[in-house]
Design a protein around this nucleic acid. Structure first.
Lengths: 217, 217
DNA sequence: GCCAGCAAGTTGACGCTGTCAACTTGAAAC
DNA sequence: GTTTCAAGTTGACAGCGTCAACTTGCTGGC
């Protein structure tokens, strides 16, 4: 898990300090486990508390309500997604390869943890005004893509235009195929093409055509 | 609502025939209303029954469980989406315009009824094996896009290749921007660009570049 | 015209959920 | 060593999906 334990104090001083130690951390761990196994519907306050070995009302000492827990999971998930995209871009040798790598990393993230991915954008934590941290984490991930497109423009392999605008269209393609894959809509195609990564590459390549400079026709 | 009343018999003979008349139809109407207002979380058996003016257990005479009601809503929604895409394509004057019209109709449908749209692909009715009608309705909508791409190929404005493969990538872009719009992720861009339709056009145009034949570079 | 049969709808209950108020526990600060 | 207060527990409430048992009232067969 990305997030540090909830306090900056030395761990040794916290261990066994209170009834539980660091219940907030344990609850998030339990919630993550339930989310990956049963989807967001399985992430219930009581289920989390049971898994953490505390009473049903204990989570209310650390979270306002169920939605707040889901919001923290979403925030962490978006930060991890942004990190993974940035790492993929950093490994690539040139701007074109970086954009492809970002797209494939994005889809891979969604495929590996579909329930988490659905939570990132779904309606469970829809009220962005209530959770600005979630929105900021999303913007951070988006910025990785915008930066990669701007770099492509500087290298002359991406056509001119507002990078943010180009990024939205490109993101839509990658986001869309990720959704279609994890929702099982293109399951037959995946079986025929040899795995979700192959389908993702297909889409990323086609979306790339929309970014390249067009010669006059 | 697309679906006809549940029986083929003359309506006059059904009116007031049983305790309620046509409760199945009334329940679906109530469920649709709740879905559009409160999202799928608001579509509860008891809420539906209250809105239809019957007792909490009455719906079980017509639906196996809550998920079955959602599945019918999803099926109807997918059929309506397919119809709308087909109508948009039929109105267009040439294959290129048809593809653009399909994309814009698709996004418009999602924007007008976001809760329904989320239900169409979301995990609430994920078990496609249990509801083959839902899967078939989805395939029917997808086929409209495949046909439009095949027509574009015959007219020489879409590049060669498996139409189903090209359709998946194009669909991903349209599906993705629809999701991003209704999830409020690109809200700022929408405000800046003058409405969701403008953003949708942007994406459709960029995705279109991925479909056109490429001159040798 | 009556009666049996059966689909349609009701009532009441079960265990589950999120949430809250009232209570107890135990570490820390003076 | 006492006080204080955060942390965790207990018990309760309303609402949920679902089911078994019961009632209602239309319909087809005599």
């Amino acid at each position: 898990m990305r997030q540090a334990r909830s306090s900056g104090r030395p761990l040794a001083k916290r261990q066994g300090r209170f009834h539980h130690g660091d219940l907030r951390w344990a609850l998030l761990q339990a919630a993550t486990q339930l989310l990956d196994r049963d989807g967001s519907a399985g992430v219930g306050l009581r289920a989390i508390a049971r898994l953490a070995g505390v009473s049903q009302a204990a989570p209310y000492r650390h979270f306002a309500d169920r939605e707040s827990i889901l919001a923290v999971l979403a925030e962490n998930g978006l930060l991890a997604l942004g990190d993974r995209m940035a790492a993929a871009a950093a490994r690539a040798s040139d701007p074109a390869a970086a954009l492809a790598a970002i797209g494939e990393a994005y889809v891979a993230h969604a495929v590996e943890r579909p329930h988490l991915y659905r939570l990132l954008f779904g309606p469970e934590v829809a009220d962005k005004a209530r959770y600005p941290a979630v929105r900021d984490a999303g913007h951070r991930a988006m910025q990785v893509l915008v930066d990669a497109i701007a770099a492509g423009q500087r290298a002359g392999v991406v056509r001119a235009g507002d990078p943010a605008e180009l990024a939205i269209a490109h993101w839509a393609a990658v986001h869309g195929i990720a959704q279609l894959i994890i929702d099982g809509v293109v399951a037959e195609r995946i079986a025929a093409s040899g795995g979700p990564a192959a389908v993702a590459r297909l889409v990323v390549r086609q979306a790339w055509e929309g970014l390249t400079p067009r010669p006059a026709r």
